[in-house]
Amino acid sequence: MSTLLVHRPGLSTTVQDRGRFGLQRFGVPTSGALDPESYALANALAGNPPDAAALEIRLAGPALEVEAESAIVALVGGDTPLAIGGPAPRTVPPGRSVRVVTGDVIEVAGLRASSTAYLAVRGGIDVPAVLGSRSTFLRGPFGGLEGRALRSGDRVPLANASAPDAPERALPTGTLPKRPDTLHVVLGPQADLFTQEAIETFLAATYTVTHEADRMGIRLEGERLTHAGGFDIVSDGIAPGAIQVPGSGQPIVLLADRQTTGGYPKIATVISADIGGAGRLGPGDRVRFSALDVATAEQRARAHHRALKAALARIAQATVGMIDEAALYSENLIHAGPFE
């Protein structure tokens, strides 16, 4: 079997795909890529369908030795380049695919301009689907590689034993997603449980991401937000990007591995177009919140989808004589998922 041998695991490197849908009513979170745009772009560069399982890297990356005849890999995560060690050392600029061969060591150092990156390998990471997804859910623990982050000595299974000697692909200039300085939100579902002053503070202040930042969510530090009454509510559902405020008055942005239900008031929810941006934030980053109405958020969802689709189509068109990937990417990319 073809694998990537883990020399160094990185801080928290997990297998992720688009996520696990339809099971939130059973307490199973969606999981999946924290930054769906970078994930989709990495897959496109590697020549993959948009839902192929890739490695999600947080803050500091892994070193992986290629134990396959050959492979095409691509890293997308801010401005982070890919270093290839081993017999033929070289550096691959951000947003490019590269063909590697047995013995090459794929190295990702500290991430730049984002806290989250995706390493896609042509054919995808070949772990079994659990409840319909290959995404790792650490608290499950299930999915991905035994439900956990990579460790030194692991062998990450690859679907393909070799890769065609295809031309390199590159992202169109200016399309590398970076960490945002503003996240757009829709106020609610429980904005009415905060004082008017707290809402104004929330939308005016700059918050700093603390070290408590992981796939469940990112805890922020900044001006305290005051609840109008108590801060214990009867639990209700938690949407991706929901910003809950516990008794400390410090907001928490909830991400892919969030609990499905919770009992703290949620002052606002990050719009779907900015969820990937929230996923790119990490410790020390500073962020502000700007409120939109639902109609504007919906316009942004459509514009965001069009822009991503266009970027993916340009990657696919840049390569001639391969499968009809333009058609593959014309489907609904970010929002698709099984319906119930």
């Binding site: 849908f21 339809g22 939130q24 009513r25 009867v234 639990s235 209700d236 559902g237 949407a239 499905t260 239900t261 779907s272 639902v294 109609a295 958020a297 919906e298 969802a301 459509r302 989808h305 609904n332 929002h335 698709a336 998922g337 099984p338 319906f339 119930e340």
Partner: peptide, 30 residues
Amino acid sequence: AACAIPGVRELLPTFRSLMVFYDPLLIGQG
């Protein structure tokens, strides 16, 4: 669930409310 409203992706019942997840590219909130 029985109506299969186009764009509705997932339903999450809780103590006091139902959270309806939907695809904003397929159906608007209104």
